[in-house]
Design a protein around this nucleic acid. Structure first.
Length: 300
DNA sequence: ATGGTAGAGGTTCTA
């Protein structure tokens, strides 16, 4: 139901009071006069190569904020003009040559969160944060790219796996000490925590991204004060993937996917959630990323 | 049991 009252100079005081009362009851997420905010997270796997795909994404979905991972571009070479031309004037990014790199693109002003830890002493461009202002107050947004961890799930023989486990432990400690409120955390976390976040739980238990040491650590990170916003919309017994390897001839036919990309919110923002979409069709775009965008809609 | 593909930037690494 849509209620609207046109306010004019002649509107009687009582009608104005009614309008104010109706407006201020709109904490209901169905209310249409709240400000919608559409957020996308996407491991783009090279921002410069896939700028045309970013254009497609913006044209199709009109997001307000886009969080990217694996931009693979050093800061001085970031394609600011091209991104501004898509309507995103407010940028906060951290990149390096060849690897990693994260970026927050926003249509509306944002305030970067400064002095975030470099993690594992590496400063390898895996985390940026920014504060968004909304009609109901500021919201803190974190964009992460967790190390993939190599092939062998043994921290003693594989330093990349040791890095991954330690990275998740460090960020967990940091969030535990911070007790986040009105926060959103997104990114390629490179871990598929639930049985139905992978195509075969049994076959992947010893495969990096779904091993118990990883999924246990990801759960501890989540439990520092977040809710899994994707699983808020899709029950845990339903398969849900965001990544399909390039190494499958026919990704749709084999459908050996994993849910490596995540959107978490603090419980105080759960009432603001209004929808979630995994943009599966993006896996079939020309020159696709191996990850697809995840869209989350809020009403603030 | 194995290898399959993609991106960056070089003659190999990371995913």
């Amino acid at each position: 139901m849509v209620l609207s009252v046109k306010i004019t100079r002649r509107t009687p005081r009582r009608a104005f009071a009614l309008y104010v009362a109706v407006f201020s009851c709109s904490a209901n997420p169905d209310a249409q006069w709240l400000m919608p905010m559409r957020l996308v997270t996407w491991n783009i796997n090279s921002l410069r190569l896939r700028l045309p795909r970013l254009d497609d994404l913006v044209a199709a979905l009109a997001p307000d904020i886009i969080c990217l991972q694996e931009t693979k571009v050093p800061d001085p070479l970031f394609p600011e003009e091209a991104v501004r031309a898509l309507g995103f004037e407010h940028l906060h990014y951290k990149g390096m040559k060849s690897y990693n790199g994260v970026a927050i693109l926003s249509r509306h002003p944002i305030t970067p969160v400064e002095n975030l830890p470099g993690w594992y002493g590496k400063e390898d461009c895996r985390h940026v944060g920014a504060v968004i202002s909304t009609p109901s107050g500021p919201v803190e947004l974190h964009d992460f790219y967790v190390p993939a961890g190599g092939d062998i799930p043994d921290p003693d023989t594989n330093p990349k796996f040791a890095h991954k486990l330690a990275f998740v432990e460090e960020v967990t400690e940091w969030f535990a000490g911070r007790k986040p409120e009105r926060a959103i955390l997104v990114g390629d976390l490179n871990i598929a925590p639930l049985e139905h976040d992978v195509w075969s739980h049994k076959q992947l238990l010893k495969i990096v991204s779904h091993t118990p040491p990883e999924t246990e650590r990801l759960n501890r990170w989540l439990e520092t004060g977040f809710v899994d916003a994707m699983r808020h919309f899709v029950p845990p017994q339903e398969k849900l993937y965001t990544w399909w390897s390039y190494r499958n001839r026919d990704w749709q036919k084999s459908n050996r996917g994993r849910r490596l990309d995540h959107v978490w919110v603090t419980p105080d923002l759960v009432p603001n959630l209004s929808g979630m979409t995994v943009v599966r069709e993006a896996r079939d775009w020309v020159s696709p990323s191996d990850h697809v965008p995840v869209v989350v809609d809020f009403q603030f």
